[in-house]
């Protein structure tokens, strides 16, 4: 039987009815049609399914949709504001941080989280912050550069505004 839950996904609040065993990632993809969040393992290891849940990056294959009741979720589709890319997205484009793009949404969300915790990370800290996300294409170097770019860009914007 379905359980009623309430979620705010990418700024839109709604009530949903879900099976208790429905994984959050399947719920987002199959029920809300937000297919930008990918599945690489379903066992919490690859990070392709990473989304922000109440501002924290989580692997959405590791929790049930019902556990997220009341939460605010941001997926890759909700990251750009008013058609303007998030600095991390921009960094990935500028620095060729992706090839096949499959790991990319999860990677970008983890990048966003890492910059929230540390606005000026060293390369080592960037690598540490993304250690939960697997990529088979890039060798990670351009991803590190992408996050570095985003950090610089965000800090520069903050200084200007400041």
């Amino acid at each position: 039987m379905g359980h009623k839950i309430q979620l705010t996904i990418n700024g839109n609040s709604a009530e949903y009815e879900v099976e208790p065993r429905m994984l959050l990632v399947h719920f987002l993809r199959d029920h809300v049609s937000l297919t930008g969040t990918h599945i690489g393992c379903e066992t919490g290891i690859c990070g392709a399914c990473t989304v922000l849940l109440n501002g924290e990056a989580i692997k959405s294959c590791m929790i049930f949709a019902v556990q997220a009741d009341g939460a605010e979720i941001i997926t890759i589709e909700g990251l750009a504001k008013d058609e303007k890319l998030h600095a991390v997205q921009e960094g990935f484009w500028e620095h060729h941080g992706l090839q096949c793009g499959y790991c990319t949404p999860g990677m970008i969300i983890s990048g966003v989280q890492l910059l929230k915790r540390n606005s000026d990370p060293s390369d080592e800290e960037i690598r540490h912050g993304l250690v939960g996300n697997l990529c088979r294409c890039t060798g990670y170097q351009h991803i590190v550069e992408a996050v570095r770019y985003a950090a610089k860009k965000t800090n520069e914007a903050a200084t200007k505004e400041g």
Binding site: T75, Q89, I108
Partner: peptide, 17 residues
């Protein structure tokens, strides 16, 4: 810069699933 990237970094591309 790659022309395929905008759809891939915004989660708007389509893989089989």
């Amino acid at each position: 810069k790659r022309v395929e990237d905008p759809r891939l970094i915004t989660g708007t591309s389509h893989y089989v699933d």
